[in-house]
Amino acid sequence: MNPASLILLAFAMSTDAFAASIGRGAELSKVRFISALRIGIVFGVVEAIMPLVGWALGHVAMRFVSGVDHWIAFAMLALLGGHMIWEGLKNGGADAIKVAGVQQEDKSIWLIAVTALATSIDAMAVGITLALTDINIVVASLAIGLATTLMVTCGTLLGRAIGTVVGKWAEVLGGLILIAIGVAVLYEHLAGVVSA
C-alpha cells in the first residue's frame, strides 16, 4: 500500500468517529479545547489499537486463505464501505455518540471509551484485511490513531457550528474511500498476475 492510500485509509477509518464527535459537539452549549482534545485522544488510542487486534486475527488466518486473500480484502473493504455509506445515509452519521446518552461536557472517560469502541469495530475489520496485504501494521495503526485524534478533536469543536449534516456526509465519504481502496487492492493483485 502506497503512502497516499495509507493516508486515505487513516482518514476513512476516522470518519465514523468524526461523525459521532460532530453529534457530541452539537449537543454541547460550550466546548473547551482541552475537553475536545481529551475526547480525541481517547478515540484515537482506541482506533489505533483495534487494527492491531484485527491484524493479529487476520495474520493467524492468513495461511488458510493465502490463495484468495486479495478477494477477501476487496470484499471486506467493499462491505464495510457499503455499511458506512448506508449508516451515514440512514442515521445521519451521528448516532454513535448518543449511545452514552449524557449531556454534560465532562462525562466519564469510560463512557467516552465505550463510545470510541463502538465506532472502532470497523477498524478491527480493516486490521484483518491489512493482514492480507503488504503493509506495516504499526505505521498503519499509528496513522489511523493520529487521524482519528485530529478528526474527533476538530469534530467536537466544530459540531455546534456545523451540525450533524456534515457528519452524515463524512461517513458516506469514508465508505466510498474504503471501497476505492478495496478496488485498488484487487486491481494491484490482478495486474500483478497478468504481468507475471
Rank of each mutant, 00 (worst) to 15 (best):
G67P: 04
A94D: 15
D69S: 11
W55N: 05
D122M: 01
V46L: 09
A4Q: 06
F33W: 12
T129M: 03
I41K: 06
I137D: 05
D134V: 03
V45A: 13
L80F: 09
W169K: 00
D106W: 05
L146R: 01
I112Q: 14
H59N: 12
L132Y: 04
S141Q: 05
A12K: 02
L79H: 00
D134E: 04
I97S: 13
A19M: 09
G54V: 05
S195W: 15
T148Q: 08
L173Q: 01
I144Y: 02
M1P: 10
G101V: 06
L132I: 01
M1V: 12
G54A: 11
G67C: 07
V152L: 00
A118D: 01
A123C: 04
G25H: 09
A36H: 11
A19N: 05
H83C: 10
G54W: 04
V139E: 09
I7K: 03
I135T: 13
L57V: 13
L158P: 00
D122V: 03
F33V: 13
V172P: 06
D134F: 02
G93Y: 14
M13I: 01
R63G: 06
V42A: 11
L89T: 04
A123R: 10
S5F: 07
V152R: 00
D122E: 08
A100E: 14
L52Q: 05
G40Y: 09
S66D: 11
G127H: 03
A140Y: 06
I39G: 08
A116K: 06
A113W: 00
M151T: 00
D16N: 07
S195F: 15
V166T: 11
I135K: 05
L9S: 08
L132T: 03
V99D: 12
D106E: 13
G67S: 11
G82L: 14
V183C: 13
S141P: 08
G58T: 01
L8D: 01
T119N: 11
L186A: 14
I137R: 04
S195V: 15
T153P: 02
R38Y: 08
A116R: 04
I49W: 00
S66K: 09
A17T: 05
A143N: 04
V166Y: 03
D106I: 01
L132M: 08
I162F: 02
L28A: 09
T115H: 06
I121W: 11
M76I: 15
V31D: 02
V102G: 10
V165D: 07
M13L: 07
V165F: 05
R24Y: 00
V99W: 11
P51N: 13
A184R: 14
G163H: 04
I34A: 09
L117P: 08
D16A: 12
I179R: 09
F11Q: 04
G93W: 14
K98H: 15
I109F: 08
P51V: 01
K90G: 04
L178S: 08
A26T: 02
A56L: 09
D106C: 03
G67N: 12
V172W: 07
A118F: 07
A20S: 12
F74I: 00
E87Y: 07
A78C: 13
T149K: 01
L173R: 02
G81P: 13
I128C: 02
S21V: 00
A191V: 15
L178A: 07
A56Y: 07
V45K: 09
